Every structure is written in structure tokens, then in C-alpha cells.
Amino acid sequence: KFGRVHERAEGPAKILAIGTATPFHWVDQSSYPDYYFRVTNSDHLVDLKEKFRRICNRTMISKRHMFLTEEILQKNPNLCSHNEPSFDVRQDILVSEIPKLGKEAVLMAIDEWAQPKSKITHLVFCTRSGVDMPGADYQLIKLLGLSPSVQRVMMYQQGCFAGGTMLRLAKDLAENNKGARVLVVCAESSAIGFRGPSEDHPDNLIAQALFGDGAAALIIGSDPKMGLERPIFEIVTTAQTFVPNGDCHLALHLREMGLTFHCTKDVPPTIAKNVESCLIKAFEPLGISDWNSIFWILHPGGNAIVDQVESTLGLEPNKLQATRNILREYGNLSSACVLFILDEIRKKSGREGLKTSGDGLDLGVLLSFGPGLTIETVVLR
């Protein structure tokens, strides 16, 4: 008597548009150690500064975009301390800036989509910054002038794996609601975790050397309108798992001094060791076991992770080039990073006149991972 209210779509979910945005301000990685130790009044920690310089040199990052300028840091000195309470200051900045950054990426996506924004039916927003109620999803709806009846899902504090999570959720929403057009937004800022150095917490140096700011937005829907919408990728399958006891290797915690970062040297080999089982589960039903026969979007948690995944799986050097390019130009953008790589690989395919948006290949994989050593596996066509 009370059956399904919403009719299912006929076809699989497809990515119809991609937009990205970054803050205008950026830092050069080669000179960042001098800048970082100067603005945090830590130049007296000579040995720690040299250690940080070595870490920065190993990241293979060229530059990173950041909202925090020297002027902002001078006005808010607690942000430059390692342990002073600064959460309220971070909140005041990020509750406002995260939706604005997301808006810039959304406008780029809508411009490519070339359809009225009134056709957006759902919003899925993800960030690890600016936790608030009502959330960044609500603020973004107002900034864009979208209908208050847009169906919203707000996900805070997920971390680097969440780019894949957003695709998984959007696929379910698009395929189970005929005519749905799902706006996916990942907006991230390193301002939540920026803090001064400490000899007692070397993990913090890794975070300060890796993370950048950026937002990515996608429009996802099934059954694209012929002649009006141009699909870029099809989302074939999605899956999530985590490595048992992985939280002892990688975890982040909200504290009075901001978001703290805990990471062990076992993260790269542990991820590399567990990736292939995810690939087998995803691609065995499709008859694929040659990992060089697919295109790759791999989250660059750090250069060591990229190198070890490449080595463990025997990947050809060009397979992870898009990942390395984004890491070099932006650093680790947390949940937004794989979506930047997705954009990079389709643009490169277009520039080179390849037959598909995925490096000329039919199928590919998007792998994202993060806290708890959670792994998201997304098969794309």
C-alpha cells in the first residue's frame, strides 16, 4: 500500500561536471621552513628547523595554497603556538571561509554543467574544518541561492578518505532518486591544524609540511539529458573497508589547540600492503587483474605512500603521474585531493585527444585512504 515514493533511475550514476578552487595566497615549499619557523617564533630550535627542512624536501611538493597569511597569523598569535588554546579563533575563521571556498568550486562546476542551478536536488558536503550547526551545507545553500528544499547531508571530521566516500553516497542518491542531481562538495583548510613546532611531537612537522587548502565540487546524476549534459565518468562500483587496528597508525583529534595529527612510519607500507586486496575485490568480477590496464586516481597521502603503492603493485611510472602532479602543485588537500586528481586526469586526456576521459582507457580506480586506515575503492568508467 505504501510502496516506494521515489522512482529509481534507469542507469548508473555519472559525473557530469567538476570544479575546483583554492585560496589566492600560496607558499613556496622550498622556502617554507624559514617562513614557518619565523612566523611561529621558533628560529631558536635550530636542529628541529633543519629536520623540518629535510621533511619538506622529501615531500616532492612545490607549492601549497593556504588561507592563513602572515597578517592573519600576526593578529592571532595563539595559532602560532604549539599548545595555546586557539580553537575559537580557528572556528571564527573557518565557519565562514569553508563555505565560501566551496562556493567557488561549485560555481566552476555549474559553469561546466551549463544547467540551471535550480535542477540541483541534493547536496553532500564534506570538511574536517569549521564544525558548526547549522553547518557548512546550510551556509553554502544560502551563498548559492539554492532552494531550501535541496536535500542535504553534512559530513564533518572524515579525513583524507572522504573523497571516495562522497562518490559512494552520491551514487546511491542519484541511482535511487530518478532525476536527482547531486552536488558533491569537499572543502578543506590546513588552518584547522596549523600550529608551531615542538621537539616532543615530530608528527606535527609532517602535517605542517604536507597539507594545503582547496575545494572540489562535482555534479552527479543518472540518465543524463542527451544534448544537454556531457558525462565525464561513470561510477561503476564503490566499497569501503578499514585495516584492523589501523587507528594506531593514523589518527587526528580535535583539541583546544586545533586538530592534532598522529602518524607513524608504518602508514605507507601498511596501505601499500592492503591496497591489492581492495583492487581484487573490485575488479575480479570485471575480469581485470592487470593493474597497468586501468587508469589511476590515488590519494597522495605523501610521497612515500605513492612510491610504495607503485612499487608493491608493479605500476608503470606514468600510472600515478596525475597523483604526483597534484601533490606537487597543491600538497595533500585531504578529502578534496582525489577529486582534484580526477579533474587533472580528464583534462590531460582532453588535451592529448585521447579516446576516453581516463587516459584513453575504459576502466579505472579511485583509491582514497585516511584516519583509521580507512580505504575507499571506486571503480570508474
Rank of each mutant, 00 (worst) to 15 (best):
I120E: 01
V124W: 05
V39I: 07
D266Y: 07
P269T: 08
K1A: 06
I110P: 02
S86Q: 13
G145F: 04
I110G: 03
I305D: 08
D362R: 00
L140F: 05
H6G: 10
S62A: 12
W113D: 02
S293W: 07
V236D: 10
L68Q: 15
D359E: 13
I15K: 06
V106T: 13
R324P: 06
F2C: 14
E71N: 07
L250K: 15
E112A: 06
L380S: 15
R53N: 10
P268G: 14
K319L: 01
D34A: 05
Q115I: 01
T59G: 07
T40S: 06
H249E: 09
S42R: 08
Q115H: 04
A105W: 01
G11D: 10
E276F: 00
G258A: 05
K51C: 07
K63D: 09
H6Q: 07
G350C: 08
S349I: 02
N325G: 10
S357V: 08
T238L: 11
V338A: 09
T238I: 03
Q91P: 07
W291R: 06
P244W: 08
L45M: 14
I375N: 15
N76D: 02
Q115D: 01
L313M: 14
F295R: 04
F283V: 03
L320V: 04
L144A: 04
S96C: 05
T270R: 06
F340V: 06
I61Y: 00
L327R: 07
E234D: 09
T270G: 11
Y36D: 01
T121W: 03
P268R: 09
H253L: 13
N41P: 13
P33S: 13
T270S: 12
N303T: 06
L123D: 04
N83F: 15
V89G: 10
W26S: 08
E50C: 05
Y330W: 02
D47A: 08
N318R: 02
E70G: 02
H82M: 12
N245I: 08
P85V: 13
N78R: 11
S311T: 13
A13C: 00
D290R: 04
G358R: 02
M60L: 08
K355V: 04
V338P: 14
H253T: 10
M108D: 06
G301C: 12
Q29N: 07
E256K: 12
G258T: 10
R64G: 08
M257S: 11
R351W: 06
R255N: 12
T20D: 09
P231N: 04
L363Q: 15
R53G: 05
E97A: 11
K347V: 03
I120M: 06
V309A: 03
V89C: 12
I61M: 01
P12L: 01
L45Y: 15
H82E: 14
T69G: 05
T121Q: 02
L101Y: 08
D43N: 04
I375H: 13
W26N: 03
P285Y: 04
D28C: 04
G287R: 07
K265P: 12
S30K: 10
L259W: 10
T323I: 06
P317S: 10
S293A: 03
Y35R: 14
H25F: 15
E376M: 00
N325F: 06
Q29L: 10
L107A: 12
D247H: 15
K347R: 09
F233K: 03
P268S: 11
H44V: 05
F283A: 02
V379N: 14
V39E: 10
A109R: 06
A9T: 06
T374K: 02
T40C: 03
M66E: 01
A9P: 02
I110A: 05
K49W: 03
L101C: 07
I15N: 01
A336I: 00
S368D: 15
V378H: 15
L315Q: 06
I72D: 01
H253M: 11
I294F: 03
V106I: 03
E316G: 05
Y138A: 14
L342Q: 13
P116Q: 10
G287I: 00
A13L: 02
D247P: 08
S277I: 07
L313C: 06
F295I: 11
L48V: 10
D359C: 09
G19L: 02
L327M: 15
V27I: 10
S129R: 08
G135L: 15
A114T: 10
F125V: 10
T356W: 06
T377F: 00
N325R: 11
N292F: 01
Q308C: 07
R381V: 00
G19D: 02
L250H: 15
F52L: 08
T69R: 02
H82D: 14
N76L: 07
P134V: 10
M60P: 02
V95A: 11
S86D: 12
D28S: 02
G130D: 11
T241M: 12
T312L: 14
L367K: 15
I341M: 12
K51D: 08
Q240K: 11
G360W: 01
I305Q: 09
D266E: 01
I110N: 05
V309W: 04
G130I: 02
N245H: 08
G360T: 01
I72S: 09
I18P: 04
I55Y: 14
N83K: 09
F295S: 03
L286R: 06
G360I: 00
P23Y: 04
M257N: 09
I98T: 05
L286T: 13
I297C: 15
R351G: 08
R64F: 02
T260C: 15
K49H: 06
G145P: 01
Y330N: 13
I271L: 09
V131Y: 07
L286E: 09
G287V: 02
S86I: 01
V338D: 13
P23K: 12
G360Y: 01
I345C: 02
I326T: 11
R346F: 03
K348Q: 00
L313H: 00
L101G: 06
L279E: 01
Q91M: 05
P300N: 07
Q74W: 08
I375E: 11
L367S: 15
L366I: 12
N274R: 08
P371S: 10
E112C: 02
C248S: 15
G364C: 00
M108W: 01
A136M: 14
I55K: 07
A9K: 06
V5K: 08
E329V: 03
N245S: 12
T270A: 14
E112T: 09
R230S: 11
A17W: 03
G130V: 07
G301L: 13
D307K: 11
P300W: 02
G302L: 05
G19N: 03
K1C: 01
R255F: 02
D111N: 13
I288F: 01
P269K: 12
L146Q: 03
S334G: 14
C263W: 09
V27N: 00
K355I: 04
T238Y: 01
C80W: 11
Q308F: 01
V124L: 13
T377I: 03
R38G: 09
V379I: 08
N76Y: 08
D266V: 07
K49T: 00
E71H: 01
S289D: 13
E310I: 09
F24A: 14
T356G: 05
T374S: 13
L140G: 06
F24S: 00
Y330C: 06
G19E: 04
E97D: 02
S293G: 04
G301N: 00
K273T: 05
F24D: 10
V306C: 15
V267D: 13
I326G: 10
D132S: 07
A17I: 08
V306F: 15
T20A: 08
K347T: 03
P285R: 13
F52T: 01
T121N: 03
R53Q: 13
W296L: 09
F340I: 07
N292R: 09
L327A: 10
V89D: 14
G11M: 11
T40V: 07
L286A: 08
A136G: 11
F340L: 10
W291M: 05
L333M: 10
S311A: 13
T237F: 02
C56L: 05
I18K: 03
G19I: 13
L48S: 06
N57T: 09
P371H: 12
F2A: 04
N41V: 04
K103D: 03
N41W: 06
P12K: 09
F125C: 13
F233S: 11
D362F: 00
F67N: 01
K281I: 00
S289E: 10
S96Y: 05
I15H: 00
V306E: 01
M133T: 11
K142Q: 12
K265Y: 02
C263M: 14
T22H: 15
E329A: 03
T356P: 03
R4K: 15
R328C: 05
A282M: 00
